[in-house]
Design a binder for these strands. Structure first.
Lengths: 127, 127
DNA sequence: TATGTAATGTTATAATATAACAAACTGAGT
DNA sequence: ACTCAGTTTGTTATATTATAACATTACATA
């Protein structure tokens, strides 16, 4: 487990402090005071952070969240609920779903590398 | 079930003829000969077509596919495998997964509106 | 025909993401 | 310490994806 570089630390830190998902440009704006200037600096850090599963991308929102969910590091399965009213995103453990998907995809001769499950709807608070 | 408008027909037709997923701009380029000029014409058609589930968006690719999968109209659950080698996309039926997700999310007090499951990996052909 | 809803066309612009290339840093092996 | 390979960085420019705003037209139906 390699140490993070400065830019990676900065990006991760911003994401961890944020209550919400952030776009790459949201992150960039937060980090301008630290000297970051170009989107690529953020995107590159995000790429690495996703590689080591400290950050996930919400594909349907083009946004990023940090992941403290220990069980998820080393897993290739992430699942999120996204509330369409309040915007709250919640990562939840989907082990049963993961197992089922794996079985099914093996049945179809497909080798899973990474899975994104994004569920849009209404959260308990907003109902 | 309302009839489709001209633009919606055109967009759906292009997608159905295509062996692959297409970006909105891919579609636009195919339809320039029919007189379409602006991205919005395509995006608006796509929006409607997705609403009535004749088209799905692959969130992780920012691309669109048509859906002939009868069982899926009226469902709020779509699942895709995406081969990272050849790019082939396959929609598969994930009823079991859907049921499981529904049970689990209900447990967490979340009301599902729409779910995207996108699995990246290697297809049988490419293994 | 009046009326409301939906769809259209158009221009402009916002938001998201990557290409290309030179330079600096890092770590392992010698 | 030296060097080599690999990674990370900084930077400018550009590609790709998506929406805003607004005037206009089509269309069903009461």
């Amino acid at each position: 487990m390699k140490a993070l570089t400065r830019n990676q630390e900065l990006v991760l830190d911003v994401l961890q402090r944020s209550a919400r998902q952030m776009s790459a440009y949201d992150i960039l704006d937060k980090l301008r005071p630290e000297g970051l200037k170009a989107p690529l600096q953020v995107y590159r850090a995000l790429e690495k952070l996703m590689e080591i599963q400290l950050v996930h991308k919400l594909e349907s929102l083009n946004a990023f969240v940090s992941c403290n969910h220990k069980s998820c590091h080393g897993s290739d399965m992430t699942a999120f609920t996204i509330c369409q009213d309040c915007g709250a995103v919640n990562e939840f453990s989907a082990d049963g779903v993961a197992a089922l998907l794996k079985r099914q995809s093996v049945g179809e001769g497909f080798k899973i590398y990474q899975t994104a499950i994004e569920i849009k709807g209404t959260c308990a608070r907003c109902m």
